[in-house]
Computed example of a mutant assay.
Amino acid sequence: MAFINDFFKEAIATAILIILVLALRIIISKLVKRFAKTTHRIEHRTNLVIKYIHLLTTILSIIALIIIWGVQPKDIIIAISSITTVVGVAMFAQWSILSNITSGVILFFSFPFKIGDVIRIHDKDFPIVAEIQDIRAFHVALKTEDGERIVYPNNLLFQKGISIMKNHFNETNFVD
């Protein structure tokens, strides 16, 4: 009984935070799904973006819980900066993975091409004209007119010029 009396405010704040986080997750999921439906995005890509957003809200809610239960903000900042430093050093060699994930999310929300479009990638050394077969978290699957399958990293799509080709190939060339 003493625990309840001593930490009543923290318990109420925790309950409110949990309710808010659950409501926020539901609202965000519905908004992203509505956006995906109106822009004709692929469902598995939609679910991937929702997972990323849920991970972010979970991390922020854990930080909020730590503050609610009395940890000083300066101690949180020290802990987060230490963790970030360790993770940053560990992930420095893996920057391309993070870059591809970020690019995948950006491609979901803002890029003008979609699965089924034929694109030209303006690369001086390796120009590509191919149909987009799939857009994943890390890469885009492409198929050329000759049937060659190419896996192209998402982050390179932001570094190279892209043209969307209209009626460039005969539709039967790309049927599996």
Rank of each mutant, 00 (worst) to 15 (best):
102 T>N: 14
102 T>A: 13
102 T>H: 13
102 T>C: 13
103 S>Y: 02
103 S>C: 00
103 S>T: 09
103 S>F: 05
103 S>V: 01
103 S>I: 02
104 G>D: 07
104 G>E: 03
104 G>R: 04
104 G>P: 10
105 V>D: 02
105 V>S: 03
105 V>P: 04
105 V>L: 04
105 V>A: 08
106 I>T: 12
106 I>Q: 11
106 I>Y: 15
106 I>A: 14
107 L>N: 10
107 L>P: 11
107 L>R: 01
107 L>Y: 06
107 L>C: 09
107 L>H: 11
108 F>L: 00
108 F>S: 05
108 F>G: 04
108 F>Y: 14
109 F>A: 01
109 F>R: 11
109 F>E: 07
109 F>G: 09
109 F>K: 01
109 F>N: 06
110 S>N: 13
110 S>C: 12
111 F>C: 10
111 F>V: 15
112 P>M: 05
112 P>E: 00
112 P>T: 08
112 P>W: 06
112 P>H: 05
112 P>I: 00
113 F>L: 06
113 F>M: 02
113 F>A: 08
114 K>L: 03
114 K>A: 08
114 K>Y: 14
114 K>D: 15
115 I>L: 03
115 I>C: 08
115 I>P: 07
115 I>T: 13
115 I>N: 10
115 I>R: 01
116 G>L: 05
117 D>T: 04
117 D>H: 08
117 D>K: 02
117 D>P: 03
117 D>E: 04
117 D>S: 02
117 D>M: 00
118 V>N: 07
118 V>K: 01
118 V>M: 05
118 V>I: 11
119 I>V: 06
119 I>A: 03
119 I>H: 06
119 I>D: 04
119 I>C: 06
120 R>A: 01
120 R>G: 00
120 R>P: 00
120 R>C: 00
121 I>N: 11
121 I>Y: 12
121 I>A: 10
121 I>W: 09
122 H>D: 15
122 H>Y: 03
122 H>T: 14
122 H>S: 07
122 H>L: 13
123 D>M: 04
123 D>V: 06
123 D>F: 07
123 D>Q: 01
124 K>L: 12
124 K>I: 00
124 K>W: 14
125 D>G: 13
125 D>R: 03
125 D>K: 10
125 D>V: 06
126 F>D: 13
126 F>C: 11
126 F>S: 09
127 P>K: 05
127 P>Y: 09
127 P>W: 05
128 I>L: 00
128 I>Y: 09
128 I>H: 13
128 I>P: 03
128 I>K: 00
129 V>E: 15
129 V>N: 14
129 V>C: 13
129 V>Q: 15
129 V>R: 12
130 A>D: 05
130 A>G: 04
130 A>R: 01
130 A>V: 02
130 A>Q: 03
130 A>F: 02
130 A>K: 01
130 A>N: 02
131 E>N: 12
131 E>Y: 10
131 E>K: 11
131 E>C: 09
131 E>A: 12
132 I>H: 11
132 I>M: 10
132 I>T: 07
132 I>E: 11
133 Q>R: 12
133 Q>G: 13
